[in-house]
C-alpha cells in the first residue's frame, strides 16, 4: 500500500522502476532512447512501465507505485500543469 511521506523542505520526486542511477532508462532494447531523442511511444498490449511517484491524496502526502495496483483497472492521466484551465 501507499505509505505516507513526511513533508520536508526537499521537493519529493519519484522514479521509473528499474531505471539506473545515471538516469538512463533500463528499457527493453526496442524502447531504448536513441540518439538522445525522446523514447518511443509505449505500445498497447504491452506492459505499462512501472514507476513510483509522490502524490497528494485527500490531505496526505503519499508514495504511489503503479505495480501496487495490479488487480485493479488504472487510469493514468498526464496533464501540462496545475491551473492549466481545461
Amino acid at each position: 500500500m501507499a505509505g505516507e511521506i513526511p513533508a520536508g523542505c526537499a521537493r519529493p520526486t519519484g522514479s521509473v522502476v528499474g531505471a539506473t542511477p545515471d538516469k538512463k532508462l533500463n528499457l527493453p532494447v526496442d524502447e531504448k532512447i536513441i540518439g538522445g531523442g525522446p523514447a518511443t511511444m509505449i505500445k498497447v498490449g504491452k506492459k505499462a512501465p512501472d514507476f513510483t511517484a509522490p502524490a497528494y491524496h485527500k490531505g496526505k502526502f503519499i508514495n504511489v507505485k503503479l505495480s501496487d495496483h495490479l488487480g485493479k483497472w488504472v487510469v493514468l492521466c498526464f496533464y501540462p500543469g496545475d491551473y492549466t484551465f481545461v
Binding site: 505500445k43 498490449g45 505499462a48 512501472d50 488487480g71 483497472w73 488504472v74 487510469v75 493514468l76
Partner: peptide, 10 residues
C-alpha cells in the same frame, strides 16, 4: 491518458 488493466497491460 492510459488505460491499464489488472495485469498491468496498457
Amino acid at each position: 491518458r492510459f488505460i491499464i488493466d489488472p495485469d498491468g497491460i496498457v
